[in-house]
Every structure is written in structure tokens, then in C-alpha cells.
Design a binder for these strands. Structure first.
Length: 424
RNA sequence: GGAGAGAUGGCAGAGCGGUUUAAUGCGGCGGUCUUGAAAACCGUUGUCCUUCACGGGACCGGGGGUUCGAAUCCCUCUCUCUCCGCCA
């Protein structure tokens, strides 16, 4: 959520920058400013009347104490009249605030100055590439076939027990999941992140805080009986720890890491995008979250980017980093880097991580602030990134590392898997 | 799931219809004293809206109500604690 005073002071700028996200904000911004003017004058009016009313009430108290009942009675009448006016103003203020808020949350975050205009993911800019693309034999298999060949992931069994997109991992496949999770967590701990295990269900307020609600409601699994949502990412519970919190500046940056299962309904997905592990309803992910001062947040974004790159390097996977264009940056993000790993058998790049700076957009929604050494309270900046999501890493690893003998486990992962090869 | 108790400022804890602009203690910050520190003493101490400013307003778990006036009374929701039941 953008800050009202910022919108007021930078109207043209806001409209122009949101244009980069292909969002026409002209009317919405006008309406927001109009509603805010309305809110201010109504508030002023209400406050003045309340001030009078408070004064009268005090007077009544004093008059009673002095035993001047007749006079007290008179003032009371005046006060009663005032009260109906106050009530009216309160109602209209509430209504205005509600509408204003509804409009305000419709505005996306402004893209960072480095974000270029663009329509879709085809306009994303490759900012970095590393590793050599593997040359596979002609008979190389895609990961879903490797998975059944070595009996390590069972998609059919998942369909039977739950439905499509809920695979079973089995034997060395299950062990590989556990190995990757531990590897990712340990690497984060080496970089001074604090480990959390969050709840997998969250309430409405938390969904609102990070921006999943109200607009992305259909993407989350919902437990109606208890009014709870299954988390689509650990970002939600981990960031919401700080909802309505004022941190001290010396607590920043906050560096948290969490492993969690993630649940996404992925309504509307189809075709090759959902084959095998490419897109699941339930998957595992290690997420890093940082909270920082506005001054440091872009420096930290680079640090997080380097952390993710290091993980892929250690797993010996060829990867590239994209800076998302305006059309592809999410609603809440100011700047997002996507990491893609090359999947040799599918001959395509798979998105395995997304690292974003939300600046104060989430912080404003959830009232996450910090107090500076001078005692000034300011909205903090929030950032997060996958480090990493498992399924596509597994997909690429199976495909790229396949040999006649089996699938070779990258060296740095072997102490976690306790095996070096997946064979029959 | 059943019964009961409770939720007050960073923490502890009073207040249970009108000098509460929330007592008091601890903690924090500033100062006096001191070579320095401690102790003692003095002062100060939250969040939000509005205003150029002075000022005004809101906030005692959330929401609603009664009243001229609510931390205080009523309703409701949430959470915490104790006991019982169930249970990994």
C-alpha cells in the first residue's frame, strides 16, 4: 500500500511510474485524493464537535459537584443535541475511510527506477548468466520419466491419494528432498539468518499484510470452518511476525529463514508448464526474509541475490538472473530478480527463485516500523526470496546430471544425501 | 469439547461512571553531584489523525451499545490462564 501523503505530494510521478507496470492510475489517484480531502474536512469537523462536547461534559460534572442542578440540566440538553451531530459525522467518516482504504489497496507498488517497461515475461532483461549448458545424449529423458525409471517420485500415487500436483517422493527421492532442505537451511545459517518454523495456516490479517488478500484470494487453499488459509509461501507467516511492530533501529536488518511446505491452487495452469515437477499444488521451499531501513534495502537485495547465486553455484546448476520488466513485476514488488535454471532435457529455463524488494509497500499494509536512534518512527522495508524452491531444482538436477549409470549427486550435497548416485 | 478467571503504557501493577491530561514501582533517556562509575536527587518517557504553528481529536485486547460523560456498566468476538475431558 502506498502512503497517502506520498501520493498527494507526487501525484504525477505515481501515475507515470505505475504506467511502467501497465497500470492506468489516473482516475484512481484522483479519486483517492478527493476522498482524502473529504476525510480531512470531516475529521476536522468531528474533532471540533468532540472538543466542544468534551468541554460541556466537564462543565456538567463541575456544576453537579457545586450543586447547581438546574444549570447542569441545561448544559446537558445542549450536549445531547451535539451528540446526534457527532454520531452523524462519525458514520460518514467511517464510510469515507472505508472507501478510501478500498481504493488505496487497489494501487500496486511503484516499480524501482531500474525497472523497464514491458508487456510480459518475454520482455524481462537478462542481467547475469553463469555455468555452461550441459550437452545431453539424444536419448536423455525429462525428469518425470527419470522419476519413474528410478522410482523416486510417484505422481500417479499422488493423484490417487489427493489429486494432480501432489506427488509422493520415495526412497532416494524423499531423501533428496530432505537433503536439499537441510543444505539450504545450513547455507542460510552460515549467512547469519535466524531459522524459523512457521505455522502453515494463516489468518485473514496476515494474508492482507503481505498482499495475498484480498485480490489473490483464489490462489490460496481456504479452510472455511476456521477462516484460515494454507500458506502459499513462508513469506506470509515470517513477514507477519512483524505486523504492528515497531522495531528498534539496532535490531535491523532482521534476517530470517524458514523452510515450509507451500500450497498453491494454481487455478488456470495448463500444458507443459504443469508437467512433472514444473508446477505443483504442494511443494517445499526455503525462504529468506529481511527487514531493513530504507537506506540499506537495495544493498540487501544484492546480498540476497548473491546468496541465491551461491546456492546454485554450489549445486553446479547453470543459471541466469533476470530483472523483471514492469509487466511481470508483481503487484507488491518494486524490483524483482528471477533466477532460472536450465533444464537440459526439457530444453527450457525453469524459474527457481524470485528475490524482491517490496520497499515499504508491505510494511505500510501491516504497520511494520522501526524507531531510529533519533527517535523517529519510519516504515521499514521488507524483502524476500526463495533460497530455494525444491521441485524445479530437483527437475533440473535429475535431467542435467543423468548418465548411463544413473543420476550423479553434486559433490557438496553428498554429505546430506549420504549417497552419490541415484541408480536402480 | 465443558466449567471458571482474566486482558490497563517497554515490563510489573492500581484504578471499577465525572480533578485520570491513567496512580505507583521497575526499566529507558537527559541532567545535578563525581577524576570516572555507582548511589542519591531532579526532569523526562507511547501510538495515530489533523494543523505552517499554537492547538484539537482518537487509542486501557478487537468491534458494537448504554450515558451529557466509560479503563470503569452491557453485548459480542479474539486471545491468555486454571481445572476437567480428549490426545501426537
Amino acid at each position: 500500500m502506498l502512503q497517502l501523503h506520498f501520493i498527494r505530494d507526487n501525484k504525477e510521478f505515481v501515475i507515470e511510474r505505475l504506467g511502467i507496470k501497465n497500470f492506468n492510475a489516473t482516475e484512481l489517484v484522483e479519486e483517492i485524493i478527493r476522498l482524502d480531502n473529504d476525510r480531512r474536512s470531516t475529521q476536522k469537523n468531528l474533532d471540533d464537535n468532540l472538543a466542544t462536547s468534551n468541554q460541556l461534559s466537564k462543565e456538567i460534572g463541575n456544576l453537579f459537584k457545586e450543586g447547581k442542578k438546574d444549570q447542569a440540566e441545561e448544559v446537558r440538553k445542549a450536549s445531547t443535541e451535539l451528540k446526534s451531530l457527532v454520531k452523524e459525522l462519525e458514520l460518514s467518516l467511517n464510510q469515507i475511510e472505508k472507501t478510501l482504504n478500498e481504493k488505496l489497496i487497489e494501487l500496486p507498488n511503484l516499480p524501482h527506477e531500474s525497472v523497464k517497461a514491458g508487456k510480459s515475461d518475454t520482455d524481462n532483461e537478462i542481467v547475469y548468466e553463469e555455468g555452461t549448458l550441459p550437452e545431453l545424449a539424444a536419448e536423455a529423458l525429462p525428469h518425470w520419466e527419470l522419476a519413474s525409471k528410478y522410482d523416486i517420485i510417484d505422481f500417479d500415487l499422488g493423484s490417487k491419494v489427493t489429486g494432480a500436483g501432489f506427488p509422493f517422493y520415495k526412497g532416494k527421492g524423499a531423501r533428496l528432498q530432505r537433503a536439499l532442505i537441510n543444505f539450504f537451511l545450513d547455507e542460510a545459517l552460515k549467512n547469519d539468518y535466524i531459522e524459523y518454523q512457521p505455522p502453515l495456516l494463516i489468518n485473514e490479517d496476515s494474508g492482507f499484510g503481505t498482499g495475498q488478500l484480498p485480490d489473490k484470494e483464489g490462489q490460496m487453499y481456504y479452510v472455511g470452518e476456521d477462516n484460515l488459509y494454507l500458506i502459499p509461501t513462508a513469506e506470509v507467516p515470517i513477514t507477519n511476525i512483524y505486523r504492528n511492530v515497531i522495531l528498534k533501529e539496532d535490531q535491523l536488518p532482521v534476517k530470517n529463514v524458514a523452510f515450509s511446505n507451500c500450497f498453491r491452487r494454481e487455478a488456470g495452469s495448463y500444458g507443459k508448464d504443469v508437467r512433472g515437477l514444473n508446477r505443483l499444488h504442494q511443494f517445499d521451499k526455503v525462504e529468506i526474509v529481511q527487514i531493513s531501513t530504507p537506506e540499506k534495502s537495495y544493498e540487501i537485495l544484492e546480498e540476497m541475490k548473491a546468496h541465491v547465486a551461491d546456492l546454485l553455484r554450489k549445486l553446479e546448476l547453470p543459471f541466469r538472473i533476470l530483472r523483471l520488466c514492469g509487466g511481470d513485476v508483481s503487484f507488491a514488488s518494486a524490483l524483482t530478480y528471477d533466477f532460472e535454471v536450465y533444464s537440459a532435457a526439457q530444453k527450457r529455463w525453469l524459474e527457481v527463485s524470485s528475490v524482491s524488494n517490496f520497499e515499504n509497500f508491505q510494511a505500510n499494509r501491516m504497520k511494520l516500523r522501526y524507531k531510529s536512534k533519533e527517535g523517529k518512527t519510519t516504515l521499514a522495508h521488507t524483502l524476500n526470496g526463495s533460497a530455494l524452491a525444491l521441485p524445479r531444482i530437483v527437475a533440473a538436477m535429475l535431467e542435467n546430471n543423468q548418465t548411463e549409470k544413473g543420476i550423479i549427486i553434486p559433490e557438496l550435497l553428498r554429505s546430506y544425501t549420504s549417497y552419490e548416485i541415484i541408480d536402480t
